[in-house]
Nucleic acid binder design. Structure first.
Lengths: 181, 181
DNA sequence: TCGATCATGTAACAGGTTACATGATTTT
DNA sequence: AAAATCATGTAACCTGTTACATGATCGA
């Protein structure tokens, strides 16, 4: 249900095509949701079939038609229901943590590569966050409550990322020390 | 593949049945992995079919037989391969963040309920972490490197949970202030 | 000319959830 | 007497990934 709900939220803010939504997932919603284009097109079509969305086909010269989706009344109702009911806790799945349980057997260079690669990914993530922040939340003090709420999610994303980075640095440091001594 | 890898790791440390693994997922591996019993039984059977595991059936009087699984040579090799190759980044999926993008429309009491329920879950999680720490990592200074590694994962789990809790507190506080003023 | 961007999809498969099913033993 | 624990599974379904497919335009 969550992908549906995310689509309802973003299409309610602004109607758009599958491709548009894909761009939003890469930009302003990067810390909220990601999905492949295949998944989007399939789900949008199903939601139209279920009466939650309607779409207008915009013919374009020399390009495939854009299908611009927007919420129907049923879509609005479905969104309201989803908002009102609490989320269930998401299950824990940390393959990286599992590797730590085989520390002796995990090749030392693979350990370092894994952690430095993760470091690089997280650093890139922080850059994405900074870009979003600059574009949408340049002046936090002057945000309305409705604008302030999504800004909070960015802040948490940043903090969690920094928590990870601090931890990786410590683990790498400890690993280095043991190999130098 | 990750569930397979997690099963290989835990069964390498100590052979066990599907039911045993389920208990590990609730106790010492609570911050690493969770899966339903249905998924476990299916996957263990498939892994046996693929030659990664072998099992001995232990008949028990008046109870269903226990099937105790252990790694085959192929299982050990598969685990080594998995350890050597780096993980791919896991996709972002935060349904809670999505709700924040519909802040105005999200009923105020639902907001508070959602966040306090999450608070309670996270607090419970910290208790679980503390229990694991007490049982397995009572004296961090005297741990061997192999024991120290899984201890690190617990530390990160704790820090991330506290980061979440701090953020929730701030958001709740801000929400309260606006309604009092 | 090569790769990126725009714009959509189909099909097969893998991974995860929910519902249903059984049945004895132990604890409250 | 009811609920939790021990111990296993099947079947249907939903969600997400990977591979394949098309075809024009635009910038390097």
């Amino acid at each position: 249900m969550s992908l549906r709900a995310v689509l309802l939220i973003t299409l309610q803010r602004e109607p758009g095509s599958g491709y548009d939504i894909l761009q939003r997932f890469k930009a302003g919603l990067a810390h909220v949701w990601q999905a492949s284009h295949q998944q989007l097109y399939r789900e949008l079509d199903r939601m139209r079939g279920d009466g939650l969305l309607a779409c207008e086909t915009m013919p374009q010269s020399e390009r495939p038609d854009r299908k611009v989706y927007h919420l129907t009344d049923a879509g609005h109702r479905a969104l309201d229901e989803w908002l009102a009911e609490p989320l269930t806790a998401s299950p824990v799945r940390q393959p990286l943590f599992a590797k730590f349980f085989a520390w002796e057997q995990w090749p030392a260079d693979a350990r370092r590569d894994e952690l430095t690669a993760l470091q690089a990914q997280l650093a890139k993530r922080l850059v994405v966050y900074a870009t979003i922040e600059k574009q949408w939340f340049a002046d936090p003090a002057s945000l309305t409550p409705a604008e302030r709420a999504p800004w909070h999610t960015l802040r948490l994303g940043k903090r969690l990322t920094k928590t990870w980075l601090g931890w990786i640095e410590e683990v790498l440091e400890e690993d280095r020390e043991r190999h130098v001594d």
